[in-house]
């Protein structure tokens, strides 16, 4: 074997691996005996309250762990725009925690019903056309300016299929990253679930191609999650209720090789395992990362 190329060597370093921190794990995660993890990711809106137990808890969490803030409701692709009150709370939280990463989704959430403002309470799919691109880019600009820092944008699962438009999803994300200088958060399971739900091809192969469209340096975070298997013909629901699947781990190996700057996060929201079991999942990510970088060397 030849000597390691200096550039490659620079790339071979362990990137942070974190887990989503949920209510059920607060006390276990704060036990002095808990094993550590490189960072934890919290959902922004769960800490919007100005006072009370959640707010005090956040101080303890931030004292112990590096924190990533993940929005679940910002709806960056909403033509109605992000509600100022929401953005104010989000900004206040980010300023208070000084997180390592800040992210939300490429989706819409705000709109009108009978001229009344409404929030979807869900991540709703965008049409990948020029008009939506402008909306998304404008909103991202506004948020990045309000926060004074880079925002990462995550690809979602869509349960609705659209006829082909100006961009593919991958092109759409790559373009918005270029336009706004936002980062990208690639949810590997979401890519797979979309292919499983709406194509007959080999989902893993297709997902690997999808990854090749991503601008390497823009990808700052990878999400790993597992979905409950369904009967053929049913839509897979992105329930974050399972360990990461073998297929998703295989895709992770590709992603690790492709995106040397990306942190990794295990997302588990429903039917949560124990805190140590969740940390085990994070260790698995670390081990696979190490094997991939070893192979690259």
């Amino acid at each position: 074997m030849t000597a390691i190329h200096p550039l490659k060597q620079a790339q071979i370093h362990a990137t942070p691996v974190g887990v989503g921190l949920r209510h059920e794990h607060y006390s276990a995660a704060l036990l002095p005996s808990s094993h550590s993890v490189d960072f934890v990711e919290i959902h922004a809106e769960n800490f919007f309250a100005e006072g009370g137990a959640a707010s005090r808890l956040l101080d303890q969490i931030a004292e112990r762990y590096k924190v990533s803030i993940h929005g679940t409701a910002m709806g960056l692709g909403s033509a109605k725009g992000i509600q100022p009150e929401y953005l104010k709370k989000f900004t206040r939280l980010v300023n208070r925690v000084n997180p390592v990463l800040v992210s939300d989704h490429a989706c819409f959430t705000w709109g009108n019903i009978d001229d009344m403002p409404v929030h979807a309470g869900d991540l709703l799919p965008l049409k990948f056309n020029h008009a939506t691109m402008n909306v998304l880019a404008d909103n991202i600009d506004r948020v990045q300016q309000a926060l004074g820092r880079q925002l990462l944008i995550e690809n979602i699962v869509s349960y609705k299929q659209f006829s082909p438009s100006d961009y593919s999803e991958a092109e759409f994300l790559a373009t918005v990253a270029e336009k706004t200088q936002c980062g990208l958060l690639v949810d590997l399971n979401n890519v797979l679930v979309n292919y499983h739900n709406f194509t007959n091809g080999n989902a893993l192969q297709l997902a690997r191609q999808w990854l090749r469209h991503m601008p390497v340096n823009a990808v700052k975070e990878i999400h790993l999650a597992g979905s409950t298997p369904v009967e053929p013909g049913m839509l897979i629901i992105d329930d974050h209720a399972q360990p990461v699947s073998d297929e998703c781990w295989q895709l992770f190996d590709d992603a690790t090789a492709r995106f040397p700057n990306a942190a990794t996060l295990i997302e588990w929201d429903n039917d949560l395992p124990s805190w140590p079991r969740l940390l085990y999942e994070a260790n698995k990510a670390r081990c696979r990362q190490a094997m991939t970088t070893e192979l690259m060397a």
Partner: peptide, 14 residues
């Protein structure tokens, strides 16, 4: 363009 995006989004919410 924004109006058409708004229309689709509000209709979907509805």
């Amino acid at each position: 363009g924004n109006i058409s995006v708004m229309d689709y989004q509000s209709q979907f919410l509805n």
